[in-house]
């Protein structure tokens, strides 16, 4: 049965992944973490992740008025890495985002994005 730990293991199997976590973006709390985090601080990374998602989500600046248009993922690029944030849509109330940190040289953005979509869906597939 794929649980949270299994999901993070799979995320770490994405080429170039150096760290992964599941973050509650209302509180900025890392519900589950694995691997490395920027500046070796998962909690600070989670708080930053929450701020980014809140900014994109709460003001709905990028979500169009089309029905069912949802924020799906956010990608932050730095000189050394990619930071991918994928919203996990659960039927019950939760505000979770799957975060994966990729090495810039080893990682492939398209592959990672595709894999993360599948992971987030499998985690809660009813």
């Amino acid at each position: 049965m794929p649980g949270v730990d299994h999901c993070l293991q799979e995320a770490m199997a994405i080429p170039g992944a150096v760290g992964a976590s599941i973050v509650d973006y209302t509180t900025g709390f890392p519900v589950a973490t694995t691997g490395a985090a920027p500046n070796s601080d998962h909690e600070a990374a989670a708080a930053g992740t929450a701020d980014v998602v809140q900014a994109a989500n709460s003001r709905s600046l990028f979500v169009s008025a089309l029905p069912h248009d949802l924020l799906e993922d956010l990608i932050i690029t730095t000189a050394g890495g990619y930071h991918l944030l994928r919203l996990v849509q659960t039927d019950f109330d939760s505000r979770l985002v799957l975060y994966v940190w990729l090495d810039r040289m080893l990682g492939n953005l398209a592959v990672a994005r595709h894999r993360m979509q599948k992971l987030a869906d499998d985690l809660v597939a009813g």
């Binding site: 649980g3 599941i22 659960t90 039927d91 979770l96 499998d122 597939a125």
Partner: peptide, 10 residues
Amino acid sequence: TQGELELCVL
């Protein structure tokens, strides 16, 4: 799913 249950319980 196990994932849903774990996330909900957490």
